[in-house]
């Protein structure tokens, strides 16, 4: 059974049709790349899937459960983790606490335990810390656990966002331009990281990315978006030679 199934999604803002008839079916272990020029509606797809905007029509289901009209936090708890194009970490929290925030909604102690040192609190906090440190180790940030994210490099902050998304225990992971702003060496490390995570957790990954070499190398399936519409779907090798795709990227050839 597919982990994520999106059927005929539509979304427009005022007169702008941001998504026109988008469908996608992803299985465990798959990496789907979503590419397209700026303004093609890629991030809007993520925002609709993760519940920030309700779709105009269409259906989204995850692990067989209809999540189309759930609230944002319910969708996250149902097993969706995401990162943001313009890095949105929590200011005022340490690196570890940023990751802990994604664990906290599932932490098993209540308001009383938050106000007083009850035994359940210490057990859960310890479990959470170990759980989150594991993800920090995975992205290579365990040494910075007690630093503040504001002082970290761009690459590290991108990795921290990934660790935070992992702590949501996702079955579907949405990565919105994870390589933006990274230098070529960091891009190499990131590629390895994404592949490693895909192997280890066996979740479905949706990846929006401008760096074609990165997407083409690791995705099994590529969706090419232009003006809200899907103009091509297929293996990287097929998409690469599709005339419509070349046109969208390079512009129409004269003559």
């Amino acid at each position: 059974m597919a982990v994520l199934k999106i059927d005929n999604l539509y979304k427009s803002f005022g007169g702008v049709k941001a998504i026109r008839d988008f469908s996608l079916t992803a299985d465990r272990g798959e990496i789907h790349g979503i590419i397209g020029p700026n303004g093609a509606g890629k991030t809007t797809i993520f925002n609709v899937i993760s519940g920030i905007y309700p779709p105009d029509s269409g259906k989204i289901s995850m692990n067989g459960k209809d999540i189309t009209h759930l609230e944002q936090h319910q969708i996250a708890l149902a097993g969706m983790g995401r990162t943001f194009q313009n890095i949105r970490l929590f200011k005022g929290l340490s690196v570890l606490d940023n990751v802990m925030c994604a664990f906290d909604p599932r932490s098993k102690y209540g308001v009383a335990g938050s106000l007083a040192p009850l035994p359940g609190r210490f057990r859960e906090e310890k479990r959470g810390r170990e759980f989150c440190m594991h993800f920090l180790q995975m992205v290579g940030l365990e040494k910075q656990a007690h630093e503040h994210p504001e002082g970290m490099s761009y690459g590290h902050r991108r990795r921290l966002e990934i660790a935070r998304a992992l702590a949501c225990e996702p079955t579907v992971l949405l990565l919105d331009e994870p390589a933006a702003g990274l230098n070529p060496m960091e891009v190499g490390g990131l590629t390895q990281l994404i592949l490693k995570l895909s192997n280890e957790f066996n979740f479905a990954i949706l990846l929006i990315e401008h760096r074609l070499e990165l997407v083409m190398n690791i995705s099994q399936i590529i969706h090419v978006q232009n003006f809200g519409k899907t103009i091509a779907v297929g293996k990287p090798s097929e998409v690469r030679n599709d005339p419509q795709v070349i046109e969208a990227y390079l512009g129409k050839e004269d003559g």
């Binding site: 993760s50 519940g51 920030i52 609230e71 944002q72 936090h73 996250a76 708890l77 995401r82 943001f84 949105r88 970490l89 929590f90 200011k91 005022g92 929290l93 925030c101 994604a102 906290d104 909604p105 599932r106 935070r164 702590a167 949501c168």
Partner: peptide, 12 residues
């Protein structure tokens, strides 16, 4: 710090 990101992490 960021309501929208908080919601995306499952925070009610």
């Amino acid at each position: 710090s960021d309501e929208l990101a908080a919601k995306s992490m499952g925070i009610n």
